[in-house]
């Protein structure tokens, strides 16, 4: 029986551990990593085990430690981007633990005290690795969510050219400070681009209408006004209107119309236009 040494054990059984680890991973992940995963997976597995051994061989091995963290971060990030779940990502380390454990029993037999000692020792280190990997996964996911939020924000406040110098702003969903700013920004940009003098802002799709929303909208309207663009608000719900009057808010110098139809009519009237029925032959 050889003397107890984790690193010697890992180095000697390197190939077996890797192949067992990788096959376990592939079994769990299947095709989830895409079409050509095995090459990258092999690189990740080998690289990780090598640096892991490196950190165990020499204490405070900064280079190996850094390598380890880079690899774990890479795995966490890539897997998160591929849409794998958090528990699936934890498997990267958990399967390594399984592979090590079954290998050590194979070599030393399953009732060996030294084997248990070794398992206990790497258990703790592996848990740390799991944490790092998990953190990278979470960071990546959060970044993704932020990006999606930003994209959604842009999508949700379109400003449409309805007619020459007339804009339409259909608002849908909850309006908070960030969105209000975004709406104001895109409206003002469009006003300067189209040199618009009238904008119809439709609030039919805004579910909650309170002081905060009203405050934001007044700012938007005032800013548009400074650029010489009149704003017509349409689609304020009956509840919304009552809430506003109870709160003592009135939209001064703002034209309001009950629905989009009369709002559009008002906008045309302001520009001296009208819609007439053409006799159909």
């Amino acid at each position: 029986m050889k003397d107890l040494d984790i690193t010697t054990f890992m180095t000697e059984n390197f190939a077996q551990i890797i192949s067992l680890w990788q096959s376990k991973l592939e079994k769990i992940l299947g095709q989830r990593l895409g079409n050509a995963p095995s090459i990258q997976l092999e690189r990740h597995c080998k690289g990780l085990l090598e640096s892991f051994i490196g950190t165990l061989t020499i204490k405070d091995n900064d280079h190996a430690e850094a390598e380890l963290i880079t690899l774990l971060t890479e795995v966490g990030t890539i897997w998160a981007r591929k849409g794998l779940s958090a528990s699936e990502t934890s498997n990267f380390i958990l399967t390594l633990k399984e592979a090590l454990n079954s290998n050590v029993f194979e070599v030393y037999g399953d009732s060996d005290a030294q084997a248990f000692q070794m398992i206990l020792e790497w258990q703790q280190r592996l848990d740390q690795l799991l944490m790092i990997c998990h953190q990278a996964y979470t960071n990546s996911r959060e970044k993704l969510i932020k990006q999606q939020n930003a994209a959604l924000l842009e999508l949700s406040s379109p400003v449409v050219k309805m007619w020459d110098q007339i804009l339409l702003v259909p608002l849908i969903g909850v309006i908070d400070t960030v969105r209000a700013r975004q709406i104001t920004e895109s409206l003002l940009t469009e006003i300067t681009k189209q040199e618009s003098t009238v904008a119809v802002m439709d609030l039919t799709g805004v579910p909650v209408f309170d002081t905060a929303v009203a405050g934001h909208l007044i700012k938007t309207v005032n800013a548009a006004h400074m650029l010489g663009c009149k704003v017509i608000l349409t689609g304020i719900s009956a509840e919304g209107a009552l809430v506003l009057t109870k709160l003592g808010i009135e939209f001064k110098q703002v034209l309001t119309r009950g629905n989009l139809h009369s709002g559009v009519q008002a906008a045309f009237a302001l520009k001296g236009l009208s819609v007439t029925l053409k006799s159909v032959a």
Binding site: E185, L188, I191, K219, A223, A224, M226, L227
Partner: peptide
């Protein structure tokens, strides 16, 4: 008054 920059208008109302 004419020619107010859009971002200036935004800042003023903010």
């Amino acid at each position: 008054v004419c020619g107010i920059q859009p971002y200036v208008a935004m800042t003023l109302v903010e």
